[in-house]
Write a protein that binds this DNA or RNA. Structure first.
Lengths: 168, 168
DNA sequence: GACAGATAACTGCTCAGGCAGATATTGCTG
DNA sequence: CAGCAATATCTGCCTGAGCAGTTATCTGTC
């Protein structure tokens, strides 16, 4: 569980192979998972992004549009439109904050909660099937490694953006 | 290295948390990696997708448009246009096959090879920095786990598509 | 308390990428 | 060898998402 010490570089120009590149693997996984998940929601006409937003609000990961956009590394404009749709269909509700009148708080409605609950088993089954040949320890490890990598790349991204802003 | 035996389900409806979901982690990583990589190529006006295509052709992962689309789990129409751009800029070349006149073979040009070579160090550095706190064993493990998961989900996707086609 | 700078949400513009259909070619089957 | 299904590529269309700019609000400074 403890993080390792600094090492010499993992990749090198000579030995690099696309197939063993994490970026390649993640891109392909994403390209498969998104439509795969959307197929699960086909009868509800639900997008994977919409699902993620609904779950993020339900689980209290994000309370406002901005937080949502930051937590999902998503454009804030696109997030606004995503929330528009979910609100129009009655799964979320917007409420202007009283403390800071710029922000709009998001809350899942009873309908939204019911929908999330009814779709959840499909998602669970999808992932359990995908992980069928993984031991619990391996699944845990995969999640832990991805989480660490995410934190690392997130920090790097913030750093880069800060530099870009300072350059202006 | 050996794969584990069948287990009871890893996820359950009660304990599911978005933050611990592999789909969520992969989506976020993808959302960070794609623009991050594109920033590396900014001066070459290169897309991450274009980079992946160029590398796939260079490394012989794919020889034709169709293979490319399959290997990257990408739309074939979009792939055509990607190749259009890379060809127009002189990085790839199309050549109609003589054995099967439907297929168009792809080959990287000297210019394309030179570009790939010149950009490679940036990509290597990006990933080595991202993996700085991972031991070589951990990095290997992450790649191995992602590869297994990819194979699994890929098989499932093919199965699903076959069923969908049979239903017609 | 006026002004500057930051932040939240939203809107118009543009474009990559997915979907469905068109065309050319091949292979299979009777 | 006629006909039909499958395959490879390409094209038109449309949606989703990123970018830049707008408005409203807040915070900090002098």
């Amino acid at each position: 569980m403890d993080s390792a010490m600094a090492n010499r570089p993992f990749y090198s120009v000579e030995k690099f192979q696309a197939r063993r590149s994490i970026g390649y693997l993640i891109k392909r996984l994403n390209n498969l998972i998104v439509p795969g998940a959307e197929a699960l929601f086909a009868d509800a006409e639900f997008t994977f992004s919409q699902w993620v937003v609904l779950m993020a609000v339900r689980d209290g990961i994000a309370d406002t549009c901005g937080e949502l956009a930051r937590h999902l590394d998503h454009d804030s404009g696109a997030t606004t439109r995503l929330v528009d749709q979910l609100e129009k269909r009655g799964y979320l509700r917007r409420r202007r904050s009283t403390e800071d009148r710029r922000v709009v708080h998001l809350r899942i409605t009873a309908t939204g909660r019911a929908l999330a609950k009814s779709l959840m088993p499909r998602v669970i089954d999808f992932w359990n099937e995908a992980l069928e040949e993984f031991s619990p320890a391996e699944a845990q490890q995969l999640i832990a490694l991805l989480t660490r990598l995410l934190a690392r790349i997130e920090a790097r991204t913030l750093e880069t953006r800060k530099q870009a802003r300072a350059a202006k």
